Amino acid sequence: MTIENTNVSRRTLVKGAAWSLPVVAVAAATPLAAASTGTASAQWTQANTQLLTLGLLDNSGTVSASVLPSAPTQFRITNGATELPNVTAVFTAALSTAGLNITVPVGTTKLRGFAPSAVAGGTRVGNITITDREIASVALLGTTYAQDTAATYSLGTIAPNAALDFDTTWGATGREGLNISLGVATSVTVVVSLQSNGVEFAQLSGSNINMLANAGVL
């Protein structure tokens, strides 16, 4: 699996479709906007709450949790009367700093990030992007980074009045540095932008990856 590393904190998603004739673009604008606002919805429908084993995103092995984490594992798109063409799911996952207690970093430490390694019925588009975000630094001692991720999956065309479930399998990035105490609990904020022809019609949020910070995952 290809992973792209970057230190740039802002990512731009290229949206929209290229049309050969301006008059076609004008004709398509109205139904596309209507589809994005009124005919479809999405929600998380299942979550994993068992002991979790995650495959590393570079396929170099697995990492196992020693406690009970939770992660959203299935979402459903419920469509209305209008076909949704070229549907994509754009995942972002960012470690929350709430509850973390990193007081004395030693050397360079990178905590694990999380990204979907597979979406059943979907095809990954491009690379999984990993952005190193500094969350703690002490002069002459070290810096700790969170590894935030972004990944896009193509889900194809969703027919009118269809309700489709998509199972999501999570993977983890590698980590670097010392294992240090990170506090009591932490979470990874997961947001999924669901788009048709590059226009968002629904968003999944509020169901995150949660775990004890000393669970052996980070």
Rank of each mutant, 00 (worst) to 15 (best):
M1R: 13
M1S: 14
E4H: 15
N5P: 05
T12N: 08
T12A: 09
A17C: 10
A18H: 09
A18S: 11
S20W: 11
L21E: 05
P22H: 02
V23L: 09
V23R: 09
V24F: 12
A28N: 10
A29K: 06
T30I: 13
P31S: 06
A33G: 06
A35D: 03
A35H: 03
A35R: 15
T37G: 03
T39K: 07
A40Q: 08
A40D: 06
A40I: 09
A42F: 06
T45M: 05
T45H: 05
L51E: 12
G55S: 14
G55V: 12
L56H: 14
L56W: 07
D58Q: 02
D58E: 01
S60A: 05
G61Q: 01
T62Y: 12
V67I: 08
L68M: 10
P69V: 11
T73M: 01
F75L: 03
A81Q: 12
N86Y: 00
N86A: 09
N86E: 05
A94S: 14
S96D: 08
A98L: 09
G99H: 02
I102R: 00
T103G: 02
V106P: 00
G107T: 03
G107W: 02
K110F: 11
L111C: 05
G113N: 13
A118C: 05
V119T: 07
V119P: 03
V119E: 02
A120F: 07
G122L: 03
R124S: 06
V125C: 08
I128Q: 04
I130W: 09
I130H: 11
I130R: 15
T131V: 14
T131Q: 07
R133D: 07
E134R: 06
E134Y: 00
A136C: 00
A139I: 12
L141D: 03
Y145C: 13
Y145S: 13
A146C: 15
T149K: 03
T149I: 01
Y153H: 09
Y153A: 10
I158T: 06
A159R: 10
A162Q: 08
A163W: 04
D165H: 13
F166Q: 03
D167N: 14
T169K: 02
W170M: 01
T173C: 02
G174T: 11
R175H: 08
G177S: 07
L178H: 15
S181I: 05
L182D: 03
G183I: 09
A185N: 14
T186S: 14
S187D: 10
T189P: 00
T189S: 07
V190W: 04
V192A: 11
L194R: 12
Q195R: 15
S205P: 01
N208E: 08
L212M: 07
A213C: 12
N214T: 11
G216W: 04
V217S: 08
